[in-house]
Computed example of a mutant assay.
Amino acid sequence: MNILQALFFPPEQPGGVSSMVPYIQERFNKLGWPTELFSLPKRVRGKGQEAVQFETFDVALYEGNPTIDKYLQTYRDYVWWTKLRMSKSYDLIHAHHPIPALVMKQLYPDTPLVMTIHSSYERELILNGKIIEGGPEHRFLTSIYGELEAKTDRILTASESFRQYMTPYVKRPEAIHVIPNGFDEKRFKPISHENEVVQLITVCRLVPAKGLDILLHACAELKARGQGFVLHIIGDGPIRTELEQLALQLNLYDDIIFYGYMLHPEEFMPFFDVFVLPSRAEAFGSVFAEAALCWLALVGTDVGGIAEQIEDGTNGLLVPPEDPLALANALEKVISDPTFRYNLARTAWNKAKKVYSLQRVISQLKQVYLEINPQSEATE
Rank of each mutant, 00 (worst) to 15 (best):
G313S: 09
P168I: 10
A378Q: 11
L84N: 13
T157F: 00
P66T: 01
Y90M: 04
V319L: 06
W80E: 13
A348Q: 04
A60D: 15
V207R: 07
G15A: 04
D110P: 04
E50D: 13
G228C: 06
L325D: 00
T347D: 14
H97F: 14
R187E: 04
H177K: 08
E311V: 13
P324W: 12
T56N: 07
L222D: 08
E282L: 03
V59G: 14
V334K: 07
G129N: 04
S279W: 08
K186T: 14
L212R: 01
F268R: 06
M269Q: 08
A218D: 02
Y108C: 08
K351Q: 14
E26R: 07
K70R: 13
K83R: 15
R123G: 02
Q375N: 15
F288G: 03
T167K: 12
G304E: 05
Q5F: 02
D153K: 07
A218H: 08
P173G: 08
V52Y: 09
F284Q: 10
L325Y: 09
E332Q: 13
K210W: 02
S161T: 13
V355H: 12
I132P: 00
P34R: 14
Y261I: 02
V355C: 04
K171I: 11
A150S: 13
S376I: 12
Q164E: 14
I99Y: 12
W80R: 09
W295T: 11
R341F: 09
A224K: 15
V368E: 11
P22L: 15
G146R: 09
I362N: 11
A283S: 15
T67A: 08
E147C: 07
A60P: 14
F162R: 06
K353P: 00
I93K: 07
L92M: 11
G64V: 11
H193G: 03
V299H: 04
G260D: 09
R240Q: 03
L141E: 08
F288A: 01
P10K: 07
V303T: 09
L206H: 05
F57G: 06
A6T: 01
E282G: 10
R280E: 06
L92V: 15
D213S: 13
S279V: 00
V44F: 01
H217P: 03
T157S: 05
I256L: 12
L127F: 03
Y62N: 08
F188T: 06
T202S: 14
A292I: 09
R240W: 06
D255V: 03
E149W: 02
S143T: 03
I132E: 13
G182A: 11
H94V: 00
W349I: 04
P34Y: 04
A345F: 03
T152D: 06
Y75M: 13
A175W: 03
K353C: 12
W80Q: 09
Q249G: 02
L344Q: 11
R187Y: 01
R346N: 04
V368I: 15
G313T: 10
E147F: 01
L298E: 08
L327Q: 03
Y356I: 00
I306N: 04
P112V: 12
F188R: 06
P321F: 00
M20L: 05
S279G: 09
F288T: 05
L250G: 05
N29T: 07
K354H: 12
S376C: 07
A378F: 13
